[in-house]
């Protein structure tokens, strides 16, 4: 409970830090306007005043904070869209892409990690190592482009970018076709973080005394591995999952979303950043911060579930 309460000041500090960072950034949301020779600088000052950007930063912060408390994300400086609308459009797309990718990663990284740990230095271990580290060692924009060149340009089997065939009736197969390349890239690049973690956790646990004891008592290997070892190996694994899964789900993958023209959160964030669209950046950061804190919280709580010896005070 105390841990939950701690989240409130943490969130407040994140809000202050983010607000300061974003507003101190050089450039402004109306920079582009001044490039029109027929708009003079006073026009920008007028617009900035209209959006309250000329007020002292603390006052602006209080306004923003008050709006956030009421879950009012405000209006984007780029065209006056509701920030909630923009996020509402992007978030489901990111959830779909990253959600499916993470499910696949979890499905494959447990067997890979466990196998690599149990059969350390076997051919299987080496293969898993090379595959995992191979993926982690490739910049994702490069891998994405390579896959696109092979499967879209050369073979013309799969669509290059987008989420679905626009105007076509809904079909699961159509959605899957568009998901294959981005999901494959995401999985290849990110699965190592998970499978290597599982491997090393398992390795550590497998050698501990109580596992040896269990073995010496004649408990079957399978049971040793899956009941005793895995359960304990999950503690550090849960930490790393807590740290990564939720934030990735809401934060999206800016590079893959750009390469594969996927209208998700990562791209929305990046575009807001380059155009200094303060309300949108702040809203996305805040949602991501929520995810970070929640993820950590869940990870901490999961320790208690996984290992009754750990009590959270």
């Amino acid at each position: 409970m105390r841990r939950v309460l701690q989240s409130i000041p943490t969130l407040l500090i994140i809000m202050i830090a983010t607000f300061a960072l974003v507003h101190l950034a050089p450039g402004g949301p109306f920079a582009y306007l001044v490039l029109n020779p027929h708009i003079n600088r006073s026009e920008v000052l007028r617009l900035e005043a209209a959006y309250g950007l000329n007020l002292p930063l603390p006052i602006q912060f209080i306004h923003w904070f008050w709006a956030m408390v009421h879950l009012n994300f405000g209006i984007s400086f780029q065209g006056g869209q509701q920030v909630a609308t923009l996020i509402g459009a992007a978030l489901p797309n990111t959830l779909l892409l990253v959600g499916i990718s993470l499910c696949i990663i979890l499905l494959i990284s447990f067997p890979i990690g466990i196998l690599a740990a149990v059969k350390q230095y076997s051919v299987a271990d080496y293969t898993a190592t090379i595959l995992s580290f191979g993926g982690i060692s490739i910049p994702d924009f490069w891998l994405g482009l390579m896959l696109m060149i092979v499967f879209s340009i050369s073979l013309n089997w799969l669509p290059a970018g987008g989420m679905l065939t626009i105007g076509a009736p809904f079909s699961i197969w159509d959605r899957i076709r568009y998901l294959i390349l981005p999901v494959t890239t995401y999985v290849l690049v990110n699965q190592a973080y998970f499978s290597r973690y599982i491997r090393s956790s398992m390795l550590e646990v497998v050698r501990q005394d109580y596992i040896r004891t269990a073995r010496s008592k004649g408990v079957r290997e399978r049971v040793v591995i899956y009941k005793h070892a895995l359960r304990n190996a999950m503690i550090p694994v849960a930490t790393i999952f807590g740290l990564t899964i939720l934030p990735s789900l809401v934060g999206g993958a800016v590079i893959l979303e750009t390469v594969f023209a996927w209208p998700g959160m990562g791209r929305l964030y990046y575009q807001s950043a380059v155009s200094r669209d303060y309300p949108t950046i702040l809203a996305i950061t805040l949602i991501a911060a929520f995810a970070v804190i929640l993820g950590n919280l869940l990870a901490d709580l999961s320790y208690g579930l996984l290992d009754p010896r750990v009590q959270y005070d």
Binding site: I14, A17, T18, L21, A273, I281
Partner: peptide, 19 residues
Amino acid sequence: RFVDVMLSVPTLFLIIDAE
């Protein structure tokens, strides 16, 4: 909690700010 803060602030902005 400071770690949480650091994990949450938008790092792209640190680079833009630095500019």
